[in-house]
């Protein structure tokens, strides 16, 4: 078991490194094709910078060298933990990502927990009686949600709850004009609720639909029939056999949803002007802040990879067929 776990972790580490390398290569390649000129983005609209000075800046950054060497240079500084300096914030990229991620963590964390719990609950409610009114209603609601763009959901929520009802602020993560130390937990929560709701509505539908599907399959399974033949009531059978079997796809989906979560947060944060990592990504992209954009790409790759790895790890512990398989490796 110990040897197996070690092999599992080593395999994961190798995969992570190769994934990051691939992400670096691809994003570097894409950005070198993009029309963004780093020097242009750096000096901005300033006309006082002469052509001579621009060339000197380019030479200083190594932009006059061939792409392969530039990539090598960039990669070696990343390996040393130096992601460069954000042009937009004039601070190290890692600092900006750290700060913004903390704000997003609130948002994504709340949305993640809500979408997981509510999605699971709705899925069980719908799958318990296939074809019932509950099932039809929930399925319809989920299909409607999954075909609605996240930013639109955000705008509707904003319109109803912030503009018309005035229950929540229209944007930002803290009130304007209040000192950092005076911001209360209530302030933070009231600012995070609408974007978190938007994000969880987006993530809920696939979890509910998959849970429903799996529960129907479980209820039709031989082992549930046998459980009932042995005198178990519906709820006992569901608790004893259903939930564990249901947990397998639910856990995988929940952790694999890190990708959707991050993607959704880019949109939700934009709508609510919420200063998180998603918004930083949009700003970096629109303003040609290449170091920050590349940093966020790498960070989000890592984030999604970690989510998937947690799912693998949990599946490994929940499912004895994988844990005890003769040949290891997931």
């Amino acid at each position: 078991m110990a040897g197996k776990t070690a092999r599992f972790l080593l395999g994961k580490l190798l995969r992570m490194l190769s994934l990051l390398l691939a992400a670096c290569l691809l994003s570097f390649f894409l950005l070198s094709l993009s029309p963004i000129d780093p020097v242009e983005a750096y000096v901005g609209a300033s006309v006082t910078v002469s052509e001579q000075q621009r060339e000197e800046i380019a030479a200083h950054w190594g932009l006059d060298q061939p792409p392969a060497e530039r990539f090598g240079l960039w990669l070696s500084s990343i390996a040393k933990g130096d992601l460069g300096t954000s042009l937009l914030y004039r601070r190290p990229v890692l600092d900006v990502i750290g700060e913004r991620f903390l704000a997003s963590l609130w948002l994504m964390g709340i949305a993640w927990i809500f979408s997981g719990l509510i999605g699971l609950g709705l899925g069980i409610l719908a799958g318990r009686r296939e074809g019932s009114l509950w099932d039809k209603g929930i399925r319809g609601f989920c299909l409607l949600l999954s075909s609605t763009p996240t930013f639109w959901v955000g705008m509707v929520l904003l319109l109803i709850f912030a503009v018309w009802l005035g229950w929540f602020p229209v944007g930002l993560s803290v009130p304007i004009g209040v000192l950092e130390q005076d911001v209360t937990l209530f302030d933070r929560l009231s600012h995070v609720i609408l974007p978190a709701l938007t994000l969880s509505l987006a993530g809920m539908a696939p979890i509910a639909l998959h849970t429903r599907e799996k529960l129907i399959a479980i209820n039709r399974s031989d082992y549930m029939l046998y459980a009932r033949a042995r005198g178990e009531g519906e709820w006992t059978a569901l608790r004893r056999h259903g939930l564990r079997n249901l947990a397998l796809p639910a856990v995988t989906l929940q952790f694999a949803s890190f990708a959707e979560l991050f993607g959704g947060s880019v949109l939700a944060e934009q709508v609510f002007s919420y200063p998180g990592l998603g918004r930083a990504a949009t700003e970096a992209g629109l303003n040609g802040d290449l170091p920050l954009l590349l940093g966020i790409v790498l960070f989000s790759t890592l984030f999604v990879f970690i989510g998937n790895s947690i799912a693998d790890l949990l599946t490994f512990f929940i499912d004895p067929r994988i844990r005890r398989a003769k040949r290891g490796g997931i």
Binding site: D222, L225, A229, R230, G231, P320, R321
Partner: peptide, 30 residues
């Protein structure tokens, strides 16, 4: 009241056992 106490099924294959529960527990859980 009768299922599992007076009348019970001896099913035909391994698929009638919960794949995620040790078999000992599946025998004695009632």
């Amino acid at each position: 009241r009768l299922r599992g106490k007076e009348i019970t099924l001896i099913p035909q294959s391994v698929t009638y056992l919960d794949p995620l529960m040790p078999v000992g527990r599946q025998v004695y859980y009632p």
